[in-house]
Structures are given as structure tokens and as C-alpha cells.
Write a protein that binds this DNA or RNA. Structure first.
Lengths: 373, 373
DNA sequence: AGACAAAATGACAGCGCTACCATTTCGGCC
DNA sequence: GGCCGAAATGGTAGCGCTGTCATTTTGTCT
């Protein structure tokens, strides 16, 4: 339809410079300075304002300025305000890079997450961020895309910023990643999952138990011909653990999945769920319930049912995982398992900063009986 | 005058290590190390590995190690591998804090976003991150919660890490924030919106035009009794601009909103939409269409209709904003306006790193005619 | 007023690395 | 071999700040 918009530039701009052997040749035009070359609206020197400038302007020593700015150590009220005034006038912004190097302790916290696709991770991050911000820490984030090697690289990269702590998702990492985390000398929090061996602090809920609870719920409601619709399990280890737990209960009851569908890669998980259910139903395996790898998929399945007049749960029951807010607001609330994600983030961050001993915190989960089972 | 300062061991003898004499004595009653105090499961001393250690181990100078590690400058193949081997054996992780301070140019990029609630911001971040990662940059993130003062504080805080660039959402900032961004000496990208005056680089689409296009679409489809359901507009300036554009078109056609509902604060936007529509309909204003501040609200409204057998669009048309993936997958696809969020992030990041002149890039938007209008 | 502890302040050596030299070594080439 | 430019390497100031310690300035009691 309408498509206003001026020039619709492409993303084809060349990256500024590559990491790899860029130099060597004597040519080297544009040594890329341009860093901190501005400020000082007046005609004054265009150097970045340092603590020395503030000290001179206030007529005191650098250490005193440092003490005032960090609110640390005793300084007379008169001196303090003199310094604050000078700092303000000069528009001084402290250089935390230098401060970090000098003090050997940073106000940076590393965070490595697998994705920012659905709202699960952002919610955890929100919880983490609340705590970090209150304590004056800044998060440095990396997204691994469910790729263990990328995660390893990210961890290394983030550790090179010498954070005061690091939060990562999950318990599964490459050996080298684990070694780095163990040896980096700062606290490590592993989030979301507790099924496995952690490095230091572990905050999450049991994926296996969640899967088991889901199966038990469906069985308790007399569903017997159960199918599974999931995304690629290779990358999402936690989804795999849930599936494993679910399947274990089925086996213990002499059952098995009647049919299943995996969707390796689909733009959206909702779509994967929709397509998965469509395929499953087309095969007419006489399913009475479907377990999904998560709520996104379940939502897609639910939409499919709505569109094709499949009565839920009479004709087909649906069960998801995550307890996304939206699953509470669909015409029929979805049955799912809700995890306290924001709280998880908060707890994790708090433990990280608190300096206590290594722990495992099971934040548990809540089985939400919606209208789809 | 006395001569303060510590002893600076000169070139007398090669001291075992540590210029700081931290080691040496066997006593060592933990003088506040706790930082970097771990690793090395073996009995070895636990000092952080520095470039000097690598240099010594490889039997070369520090500068050469630096050259190899940064892949910058010419080093013989033999020396290179010798150094890489030493670094690997020592499990060396470079200290980018020190590197940044020394080189006066960091591999950090600041990002300030209003929230991580729905998937809009994460999608933009994903685009940004793709580009940053490829260029070896690390994002430092702050979340302002739609609070201008918090944004200001975050900007200051992030600038103190001396990033090489900074991305912020929107064009509206406090005066001080704007001054800091202008004066910090690095490139600034303002994302999402282009209606207003930017600082340096602006990448987004016109909110006002989006609102207008939405109104024109509804009018073209003969809807005349239009209502509005939105969240708190005070914080979300962009939603306000869309509303303004929409309303302008209504006025130009001698119309106005028949009724409207604002939801200041609700746990979920979807819920706000649901509740908003319920209230609007209860008032029986004879609406034939509802414009929502965004897709989350629209989704909630749609769910309400589904649940209460309100035929969409016959009884009521719905129109949202964002073009979230999920709106494409509901039983009836929602009519909405889709913005190229990932691309927006990529373009913004590329421009930030490319070092070109200040620009405004209108990435446009696409009016998606779903089944709800 | 003198004595003494406490508060206030300043001086300066690093933190680990990179940029910029200076110096040494290497490869052709007469 | 001797010469010379280029490649390879080492030495060493800082980068802006903080921690330590020395010094000076209070304030409080006798």
C-alpha cells in the first residue's frame, strides 16, 4: 500500500575496518582518530576534560577531586562544593576506563544470552538490570544465537573488559568457555536452568521437572494420544531437557509420543507452532493433546485451531512453556508453565553482587491451568 | 623535603615478579585481593596474566606481543606463532580496559533504549548487534523505562566508559542529555523516529506519517466512527506523534475520534488493549473501527473480539502499529504498519561506524492490510 | 598554651596496554 | 662483500585515574 519514506538507504555500508591484518602497509590513510575531538563550546582548547583540569580549576589536588567524585574519604564541605562547582562548569565526565584500570575493579557486568527473540530473555534482563542499576553497574551484553562457539568467543571478549561479574544463560558451555569462567576470578551466575553442574552460582528452575509436570498434568486429565511440536532442539538445550522429562513420564506410564514435528529454523516460533500443528493434524494420528517446546509454538498451534474451528481442548488440548503474559490474555488462556523470570534475574544479580558462597537457587515454576487442557 | 612514594625497583635484578611486592612474603593475610583471586587450580601463584608475562614466556618484547595480538604491524611468522603459543599456554586474556586507555579509542558502543518490553526494541538491538559484532564492538546497554531523566543519567554513565559511539532511541532528550551527546566527541545515532531535530545521525521512520497513513487507510475503507485505545502517551512520545498524525487526518476530513481510552500503567500492553476495548464497547458509542497505539494493544483488542464473538472487521475494524510477527499469524492477520526494525538497527550501526557525515535516513514503513480492516 | 588525635589534603607511583620512536636484522642487488 | 631500504623488534613514555603514604591543618583536652 502506501509507502512514504524518503530514501530507503540500504544496509550496504562497508564496516569501518576489519579486525584482521589491516595495517602493515605504509599507506594507511585516515588513522581513525576523530575520537574525543570535540566539546568545549567556547573557543578553548579542545582537549577532553580530565580530573587534572577540575583539580586546577578548583585549586586543589587531584586526589581530593577523586575523593569527592567517588564520595569516598573525608573532604571538607567547602572543598567539596568548590570541586563540584568546577566539575560542573567544565562539564566534566569522569573516565571510568582509567578509573577501572587504576582501581583494578570495574563497574561492568558481563551478560551472555542466547537470543533476544521472544520476551523471555528480555524479562530476565529487566530483572538483572534493576539490580545492577541500583548498584551502579553497567551491563555489557553479548548474544550467542544458541551457538556454543559463539558463546565461547563472547565470553572471552566480555572477560577482556574485566567485568566484576558475569551472567550467562544455561549450564552448558564449551570446555574452554567453562575454563575461562572458572579461571577469570570473578563471580559467575548461570541462569534459567538448574539441571546440571554449575560453575559458581546457579539460579533457575528444573527444566526436566517442568517437562515432567507438564506430562503428569496431561495424563491426569486423561490425555493419552499426545504429540510434540518443537523447534530445533540441538541449540536450545533447555527445551530438550523439558522434552526429555516429559517423555520420561510418558514412558513410565507405558506411553510415548504419538507423533512429533520439529522445525529447525523458522522466522518466528509462532509460525513454527502453527505449521507444526498443521502438519501433525494432517497426518490424522488421532491426537488428543499436543505438548509444545514453548509458548510461542503453543500460541501458533492455538491460532491454527482457532482458524480451523478445532475445538480446544475438546478436540485437541494444548500445553506450552514459559507462561508468557500473552498466553493469559488469549480468548482461552493457554495451559503452560510459568517461571519467575524477572525474579530470577533479580536473584541472580543480587547473588552475583552479594559476594556470598556458591549456591544453587531453584526458583521453581508454576503450572498454570488454562482453558486449553 | 621527604621523598614519598614506594620503592621503584630499578634494573638491579630481575625480580621474580610483581613490582608491587604483593607476593614475596609467605604470610600475606589477604590484603583485600578478592578480585582476580581465583583460577589456577594448581598450586601456582594466582596473579592475573599480563602482556608482560606472555612477552617473557615467548622471549620477546611487549610491543611485539601487542602487535601480534592486535594483528597490527609486521611480525615474522616464527615470532607470531611463538607468541600465540605462549599466550595460549598462559591462558592470557587481554585487558581491554588498559588497551582502551592507552589507545584512547574503545571498542565499546553505548546503547540507550526505553524498554525491552515487547519485541520491538530487541529486534532493533539484534540488527545493531549483528553489525557491531562483525566489527568487534561490544554494546553497553542502558534501559530508561521511558523516563527522560533516567535516560540522561544513563547517557552520562555510558559516556563515562568512553564508547566509540552511542545509539539512543528517539529524538527527545533533556537539554543536558542533548548537550552531553553533542559534546562527547563521538558519533551519535538516534533511532526509530525522524520527526524532529536530530543530533547527528538519525535513522527511523516518520511516526506522524505512519499515523496519517493509518487514518487514511481507515477512511478509505469507509470507517467513520473511529475510537482510540492507547497506553500512556506521556512517556511514549512516538505513540503520541502517531496519534497526532492520525488525528490530523481525521480533522482534515471533518472528523474526530468518537471515543478513546488511555491506560496509564498496566502490567501488559496486551491487557491494556483488551481492557481498553472492553470499556470502549461498553459505552456503546457505535464505533466501527479502533486505532491502537501499537500492536500489543491491538492484539488485546482482537482477543477481546474473538472471545465475545464480535465479528472483525464487520462489526469492528482494528488497526495497530509495529507489524509484529505475531500479528501476521493470528487467525485473522491484523492490519498494521510494519517498520523494518532489524534493518533500522543495521543501518544505524553501520552509519555510526562508517564515519560519514551526519544524515537522516528514513527507512520508511509498510502499511500491512490484514483481515481486520 | 601545649599535646595529641583526627581530619583534610597533596604527591606520585603505578594499573596493563599502545603509540611512537630507536634499533637491529633481513634481503636483495650491485 | 658491502650497501641500503624494508621488515622485525625492543624500549619507553604516557593514557586518566586511584591507592598509598606523607604532610598539613584542624579540633579537643588538659
Amino acid at each position: 500500500m502506501k509507502k512514504p519514506g524518503r530514501k530507503k538507504e540500504n544496509t550496504a555500508l562497508p564496516p569501518p575496518r576489519s579486525l584482521k591484518g589491516k595495517k602493515g602497509s605504509a599507506a594507511e590513510a585516515t588513522p581513525v582518530p576523530s575520537f574525543q575531538a570535540v566539546s568545549a563550546a567556547n573557543g578553548d582548547r579542545t582537549r577532553v576534560v580530565t580530573i587534572t583540569d577540575v583539580a586546577q580549576r578548583a585549586g586543589v589536588g587531584e586526589s581530593t577531586v577523586s575523593r569527592v567524585l567517588r564520595n569516598h574519604g573525608s573532604v571538607s564541605q567547602a572543598t567539596r562544593s568548590k570541586i563540584l562547582k568546577a566539575a560542573d562548569e567544565l562539564n566534566y565526565v569522569p573516565n571510568r576506563i582509567a578509573g577501572t584500570l587504576a582501581s583494578m575493579s570495574s563497574k561492568l557486568i558481563g551478560i551472555v544470552v542466547p537470543s533476544v527473540g521472544n520476551t523471555v530473555v528480555p524479562e530476565v534482563l529487566a530483572g538483572v538490570n534493576t539490580v545492577l542499576e541500583a548498584a551502579g553497574f553497567q551491563p555489557v551484553i553479548g548474544v550467542s544465537n544458541y551457538d556454543a562457539l559463539r558463546e565461547e568467543a563472547l565470553i572471552e571478549s566480555i572477560l577482556s573488559w574485566r567485568p566484576s561479574g558475569i551472567l550467562v544463560a544455561g549450564l552448558e558451555h564449551t570446555d574452554r568457555a567453562r575454563a575461562m569462567l572458572r579461571g577469570c576470578g570473578v563471580r559467575v551466575v548461570e541462569l534459567l536452568d538448574i539441571d546440571g553442574e554449575g560453575i559458581d552460582i546457579v539460579v533457575g528452575s528444573s527444566q526436566r521437572m517442568a517437562g515432567r509436570a507438564s506430562a503428569e498434568h496431561l495424563l491426569a486429565h486423561s490425555y493419552r494420544r499426545i504429540g510434540y511440536v518443537g523447534h530445533d532442539i540441538r541449540g536450545d538445550i533447555r527445551a530438550g531437557k523439558r522434552l526429555e522429562g516429559f517423555r520420561a513420564v510418558l514412558h513410565e506410564n507405558g506411553l510415548n509420543f504419538v507423533d512429533q514435528e520439529f522445525h529447525p529454523s523458522m522466522a518466528s516460533s509462532v509460525e513454527a507452532g502453527r505449521v507444526g500443528v498443521a502438519r501433525l493434524l494432517k497426518r490424522q494420528s488421532g491426537l488428543d493433546a499436543i505438548y509444545f517446546s514453548n509458548d510461542d509454538l503453543a500460541l501458533g498451534g492455538y491460532f491454527h485451531c482457532l482458524e480451523h474451528d478445532i475445538s480446544v481442548p475438546r478436540d485437541l488440548a494444548l500445553f506450552g512453556y514459559n507462561g508468557l503474559e500473552i498466553t493469559r490474555l488469549t480468548p482461552q488462556p493457554l495451559s503452560t508453565i510459568r517461571t519467575p523470570r524477572v525474579a530470577m534475574g533479580k536473584v541472580g544479580a543480587n547473588l552475583l553482587l552479594s559476594g556470598g558462597p556458591s549456591t544453587i537457587v531453584d526458583v521453581g515454576f508454576e503450572l498454570v491451568v488454562g482453558a486449553t487442557t
